[in-house]
């Protein structure tokens, strides 16, 4: 998060007048479990990218390359929707 603003510097009524500024709000510290990718099992179907509620699946040239750990809250949806035959994403306890 940027430096916190003072009360008289804020838009009226707590309006967010800058679209997409949720990117500045780092929610990675909320995580208990973090997703870990086994790239050898991944076939880049990108179902995880469709389902991730926090835009935290990083894709480059149509390929899954990793996770945005600054914003991923560790909800585990990516691991859940990863197809049974691949199971390329596993959730592991943070700080282990």
């Amino acid at each position: 998060m940027n430096e916190l603003k003072k009360w008289f510097e804020l838009p009226v009524g707590a309006v967010i007048d800058e679209p997409g500024n949720a990117i500045k709000y780092k929610t990675g510290s909320w995580r208990t479990f973090k997703p870990v990718l086994d790239k050898s099992k991944c076939n880049d179907c990108l179902i995880c990218w469709i389902y991730c509620p926090d835009n935290s699946i990083i894709v480059q040239d149509g390929k899954l390359i990793g996770f945005d750990y600054e914003h991923c809250k560790g909800c585990g949806i990516c691991a859940e929707v990863c197809p049974d035959k691949s199971k390329a994403i596993t959730m592991v306890l943070e700080h282990q």
Partner: peptide, 21 residues
């Protein structure tokens, strides 16, 4: 053309500032 969000979640870091205003 000027999209805004009204009534977003406002936690320990900003709620008090908005109430002060």
């Amino acid at each position: 053309k000027n999209p805004v969000t009204m009534g977003p979640l406002d936690l320990q870091d900003y709620y008090f500032e908005h109430k002060r205003a």
